[in-house]
Design a protein around this nucleic acid. Structure first.
Ligand SMILES: [Mn+2]
Ligand SMILES: [Mn+2]
Ligand SMILES: [Zn+2]
Ligand SMILES: [Zn+2]
Lengths: 148, 148
DNA sequence: TCCTCAAATGAGAATCAGTCGCAAGCTATT
DNA sequence: AATAGCTTGCGACTGATTCTCATTTGAGGA
């Protein structure tokens, strides 16, 4: 049993909920993906693995994974309800190209101490940090004069 | 004529669009607000000033203000389509309390140089930065054992 | 001032992601 | 096996945003 499965099971037990077959499959699908995803995409992954899980169940499971600390919202301009798995992944900033949509990631190591200091000043108890930068990736700068 | 009105006019002219009465009123409403808002709230502000602008027009104008650099999206967990005006406002991080919803702001001064350095490494041309921190505000920590 | 035409608007229909209600299916317990 | 509580699928529903289209407005030219 993977670590993340144990963690999910523990979380569910603490809520008198069950680690069902559906939830296990959704969890596996989430950790099989290495990009950001939404409910619909996750559902597609399951369907192409011939797993007939209803979309409603996918929608119902995402908040559980969120609460369990296994995924986090990963908002994209324009898109809604995007997530990414975070178990075992160092926290990171997202650099989103507004032209081609590519997303690069960088660790938050240098930003974190600063935010920690400010949190102390505000007496704010941080739960989750999100750093998103929009702009043009290297490739798109160089093709800035191409069509669209 | 306010600076932001001139800027909007210039932007619209460059697109062969017109600074109409409706757009002017929406612009004024946007800068009369000093919190984050969505289309519906903006529409309410206009209605309570007896300005009968249709909600569709509000929705149509927001992307123009965005493109003109007068407002920016200000995503809130759970809420969609939130904005804030930014003309003349220093860029800032948002500290959102997950319990009471209060939003505090801090300048990005100390974070910016770090992100600038990383942008250089990535050869990324930054257009917009968003730093959002979720957690508990000071008040809510102290009432953490209260109901809800 | 009057005309012309592209741009803008209002009203309501349409879309679409996400949620909900409920009957049926599971699973642990007795 | 009966019970009780959790979970699921299905389809109906909701609410935010977008779209369509008939009508109005506004800027520039005659
Ligand atoms: Mn990521
Ligand atoms: Mn703000
Ligand atoms: Zn790009
Ligand atoms: Zn609070």
């Amino acid at each position: 049993m993977e670590d993340y499965t144990k963690l999910f099971d523990t979380y569910l037990n603490s809520r008198k909920m069950k680690l069902t077959a559906s939830r296990r499959l959704i969890l596996e699908a989430v950790f099989s993906l290495h990009e950001h995803f939404d409910a619909e995409q996750l559902h597609q992954v399951l369907r192409s693995a011939s797993q007939d899980i209803s979309l409603a169940t996918v929608y119902r499971t995402l908040p559980l994974l969120l609460q369990a600390g296994l995924i986090q919202p990963s908002p994209r301009p324009g898109a809604r309800g995007m997530y990414e798995h975070i178990w075992g992944h160092p926290r990171h900033a997202h650099w989103v190209c507004v032209r081609c949509g590519a997303v690069q990631e960088t660790p938050l190591d240098s930003v974190d101490p600063i935010l920690a200091r400010e949190a102390r000043n505000l007496k704010f108890e941080t739960q989750e940090t999100s750093v998103e930068v929009k702009g043009l990736c290297w490739k798109c700068q160089n093709s800035a004069n191409d069509s669209q």
